[in-house]
Design a protein around this nucleic acid. Structure first.
Lengths: 111, 111
DNA sequence: CCGATATTGAAGTCTGGACTTGACTATCCG
DNA sequence: CGGATAGTCAAGTCCAGACTTCAATATCGG
C-alpha cells in the first residue's frame, strides 16, 4: 500500500474535494458505515462508495466489510504522506524565502 | 490575501496538478519569468499564466511585472496554509488512531 | 423462504478545469 | 520608427471525474 512520490498528486486531489473532506471530518468522530456517511452529505451511497475508493487508495481511510455493512475509519497513512511532503519541502522553500532581496541576478543560468 | 478555511480545498487543488507542482519545483531553484517556466514544461505561456493565477490566489507564488517580463517567485503563505491544516488535524486524527482496538461499539450514536 | 437493508456494478450525464489558438498590447533595442 | 520579444485576453476544445439511476448481489431477521 506504500505510496510513491508521484502519487502525491493523487493525495492532494483526494483532499481537494469537499465531499471527501466532509467524509474525513465525519470519520474523526468515529467509524461509520457507507450509508451513515451518505446521509448527512446529501449524496447517494454510490457516490460515497466511489469517494471511499479513492480515499482508501490514497491512504486516508481503511474499510472492512462485516456482514452487509462496510465499516470505515481513518487511516493515518494519507495524513503522514502530507506531513512528509511538508517536511520534505520546508527546507527547500525556506532557502529561497530568505533570499527575497536578490530576486534578479539568478536568471542568467537560463537558455 | 488572507485565506479562510473553506479555501483549503483550493489550496489542495492547486497542489493536485502536476504542472503546477512542476512550476513550484522550478521556483525553488530561484525566480523565473513566465516563458522560462513554460519552456521545460512543454506547455504554452498562456497555460503557465493561468496556472500562475491560481498559484498566486492560493498563496504559493508571488509575481511582479518589471517592464515586459513577469518575474515569479515562491510565496510562503500557501505552504504555511498546508502546514497549518496538518497541525490542526494532527490531534484530531491521533485521538482516533489509538482507538483502533474498539472499532465497533461507537456506532450506536447514529440514527 | 420473504422482505427489508446495505452495498456494489455498469452506464450515462454533465460540468469544470487544463490547454490551445489567434489576435492584441506593451516593451525593448538598434 | 519598426521588428523582435514577453505577456495577456477571449474563445473554443476536450477529457477526467463527481454524480446519478437502475439493476444486481449479499445478509439479516423473522
Amino acid at each position: 500500500m506504500q505510496l510513491v512520490t508521484s502519487d502525491i498528486g493523487r493525495v492532494f486531489n483526494a483532499l481537494g474535494d469537499p465531499t471527501r473532506r466532509a467524509i474525513l471530518d465525519r470519520l474523526t468522530l468515529g467509524p461509520a458505515s457507507v450509508s451513515h456517511l451518505a446521509g448527512p452529505l446529501g449524496v447517494t451511497v454510490t457516490a460515497v462508495g466511489q469517494h471511499l475508493q479513492v480515499l482508501e487508495e490514497t491512504g486516508f481511510v481503511r474499510t472492512e466489510k462485516l456482514g452487509r455493512v462496510r465499516s470505515c475509519r481513518l487511516d493515518p497513512a494519507g495524513f503522514r504522506t502530507v506531513e512528509q511532503w511538508a517536511a520534505d519541502h520546508r527546507a527547500l522553500w525556506a532557502r529561497r524565502l530568505d533570499r527575497l532581496g536578490d530576486l534578479m541576478a539568478e536568471e542568467d543560468d537560463e537558455a
